[in-house]
């Protein structure tokens, strides 16, 4: 699953159209859009550090992402260099202006974007302010910090399109729309690669270490009838996982609950017998 994050609705519009995303009306506090197979979602986080962090946190507590899912923050930003305007940048480091702390998204995936560092401010940045990085915005560091609670640094990507030379008041909605629209082909080509990779890796590495309902039932039956301790339950779970890895399932495991009282000594013997059966 790929989740596109934009601060503003009009930054989102070109991607909503491109991927034919539909509004999820059950998601109330922010605008959330999704495509038919749920491989691409788009969340409008609102602008600013706190609102965007809150929106992302709410989303990530609602949707449990896997290690093969990705967040992509796409949006306009300011720049200190004229020739940056209109290009798409993948940010390789993020400076939080208020705390002077740097954050580093993992740069694992190939791309055709330019790269730069970005500095996140709590207020709109104008020419009178000093910046340390060539790009500036109002969300990146907050999204990275909020996302890091739930996700790995390889799952968060920051694509920024400079719209102004630290003169945010001079940028119109139309300017933004044009810049984003121009970036859609290159951005969506990259997103499509990430979708393919995410799907391939989920099926290749997503071995379920949790138990299916019938396996859970067997686990509970064994645990209760043998009155297993917490440690023994952990050992039993590991036996389940190992046996499933070797044989694919647990269909050959034969367990008959013992009749009568299970003494500690008997429990130990029965558990060892069971262990040997799982290791076959």
């Amino acid at each position: 699953m790929i989740v596109i994050l934009t601060a503003l609705r009009f930054e989102a519009t070109p991607f909503i159209k491109h991927y034919s995303l539909k509004r999820d009306s059950s998601y109330k506090r922010n605008e959330l859009y999704r495509n038919n197979d749920n491989s691409i979602l788009l969340l409008v986080t609102r602008s600013g550090k706190l609102p965007s962090a809150i929106s992302l946190t709410e989303f990530l507590t609602t949707y449990k992402l896997t290690p093969y899912d990705h967040l992509i923050n796409v949006g306009i930003c300011g720049t200190s260099a004229t020739d940056n305007i209109g290009s798409v940048y993948l940010c390789n480091r993020i400076l939080d202006h208020d705390t002077a702390k740097y954050y580093y998204p993992d740069m694992l995936y190939s791309h055709n974007f330019s790269e730069a560092g970005i500095e996140t401010f709590s207020v709109p940045v104008n020419e009178s302010m000093t910046t340390k990085e060539s790009l500036v915005d109002m969300e990146s560091s907050a999204l990275f910090v909020a996302g890091s609670t739930f996700l790995s640094p390889h799952q968060m990507h920051f694509l920024k399109i400079p719209s102004d030379m630290l003169e945010p008041d001079k940028v119109s909605k139309n300017d933004v729309n044009t810049l984003i629209l121009d970036s859609v082909p290159i951005v969506t080509e990259w997103i499509d690669h990430l979708v393919s990779l995410s799907n391939a890796e989920t099926s290749a590495y997503g071995f379920p270490t949790s138990l299916f309902p019938e396996e859970q039932k067997l686990f509970d039956t064994i645990s209760e009838s043998l009155r297993l301790s917490v440690t023994m339950k952990e050992q039993l779970l590991q036996l389940f996982i190992y046996h499933k890895l070797i044989h694919g399932d647990l269909s050959d495991i034969d367990f008959c609950p013992p009749i009568g009282n299970v003494t500690n000594q008997k429990r130990k013997i029965l558990f060892e017998d069971l262990r040997q059966q799982f290791l076959q």
Partner: peptide, 12 residues
């Protein structure tokens, strides 16, 4: 960094 996934990082 928090929550790094070394398995994925080993690809690059």
């Amino acid at each position: 960094r928090k929550n790094q996934n070394a398995t994925v990082q080993r690809n690059s």
